[in-house]
Computed example of a mutant assay.
Amino acid sequence: MGLTPNREVFITCAVTGAGDTTSRSDKVPVTPRQIADECIAAANAGAAIAHIHVRDPKTGKGSRDIALYTEVVEHIKASGVDMVLNLTAGMGGDLTLGSVEQPMPPSPNGTDMAGATERLEHVAKLRPEICTLDCGTMNFGEGDYVMTNTPAMLKAMAAQIQALGVRPEVEIFDTGHLLLAKWLYDQKLLDDPVMVQLCMGIPWGAPDDIGTLLALTNNLPSNWTFSAFSIGRNQMPYAAMAMLAGGNIRVGLEDNIWLDKGVLATNGPLVERAVKVAEGMGAKILGPQEVRERMKLTKGW
């Protein structure tokens, strides 16, 4: 079977995330202005989509504060720089068990469980073109933290996202998550064109080897649009891998804080490097308006 690389590629930049990367790099943006500025830098470097989390400016930890999202979006709007906004809706599904001997009650440190409507309050207010839908439950790290997204929660969130007219980007962290995405689609809770992000190399989800990537892409419906990324040192090799598999690219400080060995990154240079990889492989880089047309996005912000 021959390769069918993607020749028209869009780049998503995940500018900050919610993990404890701030303790390892002072380049990770924390305040709304810093996050907005990194989105603008990524767009100027060639990213069509900015994937946005917000952080508590005082602690640096991930937040669901609507005021922080609003401030980020307003800064971006005021800049006049065009980009597709993709707001996370993953926050609010964080469960940390008490201990291996006494799992209940959950630990207040690291637990943030919210209902479907509350998890989508910022999406309902700001109406971004895209928001994420984490399509499954999964262990993270070596402790007692579980990313929690039950089938009932996914159905409720997908229905609300659909009613808002926002395009969900379905986050696939493992092979079973793809089955959940197909299940949602069969219930008419995901509209065409379906947009998928393959999140590879995250313990304990799908590993970032070629075989697992192909196992996922070979089981994606042919009319679904996907991007793929890996974390850490494999972020840039996965820019090429995603293209070769027929998909699009994601880079950014959410997934990788390094530009080179010993050199901390910012988002703009990571996007610039991804552009070089894609163009070096003969691909055209799509801009935000081309992505809107391709994905039938509704600009509400």
Rank of each mutant, 00 (worst) to 15 (best):
A163M: 10
T132H: 03
L220D: 00
L184M: 10
A181E: 01
V146L: 15
E171I: 15
L190V: 08
E118Y: 01
L126P: 02
R127Y: 02
V166N: 02
L164W: 07
P168L: 12
V194L: 06
A152K: 11
D209R: 05
P151E: 01
V123M: 09
L178Y: 05
I202H: 07
L214M: 12
E171N: 04
P128C: 11
I202F: 13
M138V: 15
P207A: 01
A228R: 13
G110A: 08
L198E: 00
T137S: 14
A206S: 12
A116N: 03
A159S: 13
E169R: 14
D134H: 14
L179D: 08
A116Y: 02
D209V: 08
A181S: 07
T217H: 10
V146T: 09
N223S: 14
M153D: 02
T111R: 02
K188T: 12
T137F: 11
E121F: 05
L213C: 07
Q160F: 08
R167C: 07
G201V: 15
A114W: 01
P151N: 08
D174H: 15
A206D: 00
T137G: 06
D192T: 13
L214Q: 07
I172N: 05
A114Q: 12
M113I: 09
G211K: 08
E171K: 10
L179E: 06
D174Y: 13
L214T: 08
N223C: 13
P151H: 10
K155V: 14
D208C: 11
F173S: 13
A215R: 12
P168D: 00
V196R: 06
M138P: 09
R127H: 12
